[in-house]
Design a protein around this nucleic acid. Structure first.
Lengths: 209, 209
DNA sequence: TAGATTGTTAATCGATTAACAATC
DNA sequence: TAGATTGTTAATCGATTAACAATC
């Protein structure tokens, strides 16, 4: 267990391991070696063992890894049992789609509320999540524990909104606007879903295949 | 110009360059050096020059880069003027959100149609895009040029659907299901939007900050 | 015990950064 | 011309892979 300096590449592989192990659990697989896990995931056995060794010793020589145990450990590392709390800002088409379809609880998040400017939806609920007015936002954040804000607002207001929220103490952003949010505070974490960047990458690949 | 072996890391930076250059254009900036571009993007000037040099020589010693020209070049590399054609399979909440809000044309894509199983929406249009029944899918693909399929279907049917489409000649997938689609054909390209992986990465970061 | 497989150290590979001659 | 900045080559850094002793 030497938890200093985990690289971004390693961190980004953790959810994939978690996903694969969940799948193996569902298929009833009890144990797996780094070799066969690697085959299924298109990763070398070496890399898998290196990755895991950043966080501890989860295997047993001659046996491999217990699938369920390893899944629990990686889930723990990812924080799925931390009961993180989340609110959404901007309940447009995309926000609604996420509230309806995304399995927040599977990733250990509870969606406590959503905020929007539209009087037509303020006071209603979307899939059980109450929609508040933007006027209620500041007081809400002061009174509640908010770990992550889902930013599904128009690009034009995104950075200003983020700055405001950071000043109120928010330190996690799941950003769906196609701009690079930033903060001078290194403790504030941003995770971006850049749809346009993703599609442009695909555009490049099909144009140059 | 030495276009062999462009690394994934470089490719993933291209859309960011394109985005930043578009922004600079809009702000009326005419020329920029690798140094100042790097400052704005938090990238070293070296890396920027290395990245660009994979594709050609777009600058001028002592001057830097012409913003508009460079933007056009990178857009060209990404294929934004290739007029790629795209269809969507699965018109649920997420599909509708994309059809309504995502600026496909800015990335050089034309959305020609969408397909779904729900009789309630077959025959209608969503933001101008006609919704067809799944029965019409095979014939449509045979008769039209389809570069990319947006997969916004349930996970359970995703890989089977992808296999079927690949057999029909589709070679580009924008995958919104949280599974790893794959093909034995290396010419088939997948670009994934893994919402859950993204949120889990954020979960890790806020848990370990 | 013999075989299998781990965790870790060492070797390799690739990506990023630095340096600099070329030149606008 | 002098200063600035490119494109590229060389140096460094970090991540991946290979090897292997430890051990279940």
């Amino acid at each position: 267990m030497k938890k200093e300096n985990i690289s971004d590449a390693v961190i980004r592989r953790l959810p994939r391991y978690y996903r694969q192990l969940t799948d193996l659990c569902n298929r009833g697989v009890v144990r797996i070696s780094s070799h066969s896990l690697g085959q299924e995931m298109n990763i070398t056995a070496s890399q898998i063992r290196q990755d895991f060794s950043c966080f501890g010793e989860f295997g047993q020589q001659g046996y491999g890894y217990n699938v369920e145990e390893l899944r629990t450990e990686i889930g723990h590392i990812l924080g799925v049992d931390n009961n993180h709390h989340l609110i959404m800002i901007g309940v447009g088409n995309l926000g609604r789609a996420l509230l309806h379809n995304f399995p927040f609880s599977d990733t250990g998040f509870t969606v406590d509320g959503a905020f929007d400017v539209s009087p037509a939806i303020i006071g209603s609920t979307v899939n059980g999540v109450p929609v508040y007015s933007m006027e209620e936002l500041d007081a809400y954040i002061r009174d509640h524990n908010v770990d992550v804000v889902v930013m599904t607002v128009p690009q034009s207001v995104a950075q200003d909104m983020a700055d405001h929220l950071i000043a109120l103490g928010v330190h996690g952003f799941w950003n769906f606007t196609n701009i690079e949010l930033s903060s001078t505070n290194p403790n504030v974490k941003f995770e971006n879903i850049h749809f346009a960047d993703s599609l442009l990458t695909l555009s490049y690949r099909i144009a140059n295949r």
